[in-house]
Design a protein around this nucleic acid. Structure first.
Lengths: 343, 343
DNA sequence: GCCCCGAACTAAACCGCATTAGTTCCGGCC
DNA sequence: GGCCGGAACTAATGCGGTTTAGTTCGGGGC
């Protein structure tokens, strides 16, 4: 096991003091250019990297940001959203030599406890808060602790926090444009968890858009689920068995959309002949069903990059602000068509 | 922003020296039981948590382990395997107050570079190595650095490393038992990346099992893919268009299996009437298709727990060893049936 | 020729904890 | 009564950096 070189090794080898090494490698004044170059060369030779603990201890940043995912274990994994987001986050963090502490916990209480612990342990410089809720204890907690944070998907964060989010209202309007334009008048939105802020925004937007078009609440409405394939399928079955079933369904994620397509197949309802389907979020799933699903395509990795950039900006002392993600695009595929004339 | 309490604060408040506090809170001798209790109480009141950087700096563990996922960004996310694994890993790590540094990188070179950096920065105490390959530079590198590691999915790791893995050979035998028992004689295994060690094991096992049953290589064989829905679909289309197409297909992951089911539907080939499908790894996906897919069910979270336990054991000074995951179970659903009599 | 100043560098303190080397005090023993 | 030993505690050191407070030295100004 090789020994890790320290600045002491560099200092000895370059014939200078340890402080000179520190100055040289951090680009501060106090050493001549020749010395700086020499020290740099030696550090390079030795393959030196600053000990992250020592750095963190002497007041610098820890070089770590945290991301907690509070979800029951069994709902994990099928959705493409998270790994995409995380991969975008890391593109930006990696370039800034910042690591990502990632943790999956069972619920919101555990998440809050974890923030407290991370703060007390000085383990992270800041956190990305995902799945913001309508009444969310986290922004207040983080603001109180003074732990820098960026909420991902929140419209009105606590004043002290930055936020990045998508324009869900406009996206929903886009979907309604598409379906209404095709002639659909009875539309059900199979929504995700209603406590989540973005779900609430989508539901509100659906209602507003419907009203704007003179459609009544019994014709166009949202039904809540927990995002799982099971509840997505159950909700689909329920609304399709109503006396005047919808002619179009909008799903809040790809997994439920695929599950819904399965239910339609099982009930013998042709898609898009008698039923149109739209998925919010695209992924391989939407392209492997038959017919392929019309989907709202978002660049989730770009969203992650935006979030990471914003967090780094906050860590660098920037002012908190709200940034909007690039507008998603509706990709029409074979699962949407005009409703049957009979209706 | 509240100030984080340190042992100095505790010492002052409890009227003892800092060392007494350290002794008391770490359960070592040198303080009386009353004093220990008092110090514990004060620490509790103040909400003290050890500063992770200071701990790491004074020779203790950093309390962090790393996990690097080397995959091009676009192949991320649809598979359920990883988040499940990670959630299992964290159940165990969380209990041991150990954090997980998680990073997504583009390729193996970047992964190796990251291990070097983490090692030099003393950022992690150990790492979990996933996606082991047939000729893998990582175990050698890690052994050379002296960075404790557990490979997840490797049969014969470098002698210095621990490993947890599944018994792919027996699982494959199980699948062949099922299909052969139903009467299938022409079977294609749509495999994942051939460089991955577990893919190689599955391919070898398929060949061995076929031979044992007197089936020829042109009847029972593996075709490689990159795990994506695209290649899974392409491979399916290719083999189904052959003069003597297989009557059963075994897919190395759930995403490809669902994509394959889509291709069969598109080609008008009834499942399971003329074609049986098996997915390696179960997930919501396998239950939303029609028919639902027969799948090899593994407890991936348990696999993650096993890996984390083993890594903690290694960090605690345990001997390197190889541990087998619980045997997976084949869950027959509607996608497998006897082949058509004509064949 | 002396003084002052800034550039270039070194010494030392500090971050928060673990740990080793003392120190104090008390009781038991001869 | 003096000595020894152990329990209970304190002081001091180190981990590997950053940073502040010196120190040295050479050159320019008067």
């Amino acid at each position: 096991m090789a020994r890790r070189p320290t600045i002491k090794d560099i200092a000895r080898r370059a014939g200078v003091s340890e402080s000179a090494v520190s100055f040289a490698l951090n680009g501060r004044p106090g050493v001549s250019e020749e010395t700086r170059a020499r020290i740099r060369r030696v550090a390079e030779e030795l393959g030196w990297q600053p000990n992250s603990a020592a750095r963190a201890l002497s007041g610098e940043r820890a070089g770590v940001v945290g991301l907690v995912l509070a979800r029951p274990a069994h709902t994990l994994g099928v959705e493409s959203f998270f790994l995409q987001l995380v991969s975008g986050v890391q593109e930006v963090l990696g370039a800034a030599r910042t690591a990502l502490l990632f943790q999956v916990v069972e619920d919101l209480d555990a998440e809050c406890a974890l923030y407290r612990r991370w703060w007390a342990e000085r383990r992270v410089d800041g956190v990305l808060v995902v799945d913001p809720r309508t009444r969310d204890p986290r922004p207040g907690l983080l603001a109180g602790l003074g732990l820098p944070a960026v909420t991902v998907g929140e419209a009105r964060p606590a004043p002290a926090l930055s936020s990045v989010r998508a324009d869900d209202a406009r996206a929903m309007a886009q979907i309604l444009d598409h379906l209404h334009g095709l002639g659909h008048r009875r539309i059900v939105h199979v929504a995700g968890l209603p406590e989540l802020a973005h779900t609430a925004r989508r539901i509100a937007s659906l209602r507003a858009e419907a009203q704007r078009r003179g459609l009544r609440p019994q014709e166009v409405r949202s039904v809540p689920t927990d995002y799982s394939d099971t509840e997505g399928a159950a909700a689909t079955r329920r609304v399709l068995n109503e006396p005047a079933p919808p002619t179009a369904l909008v799903y809040d994620n790809d997994v439920m959309a695929v599950a819904g397509a399965g239910v339609a197949a099982e009930l013998g309802i042709p898609v898009p002949g008698r039923l149109s389907l739209v998925a919010w979020d695209d992924s391989a799933l939407c392209r492997v069903t038959h017919p392929r699903l019309t989907a709202l395509v978002r660049d989730t990795a770009a969203f992650g990059r935006l979030a990471a950039e914003e967090l780094l900006a906050v860590l660098g002392g920037g002012q908190p602000r709200v940034r909007l993600a690039e507008q998603p695009r509706l990709e029409p595929r074979e699962s949407t068509a005009p409703p049957p004339p009979a209706y």
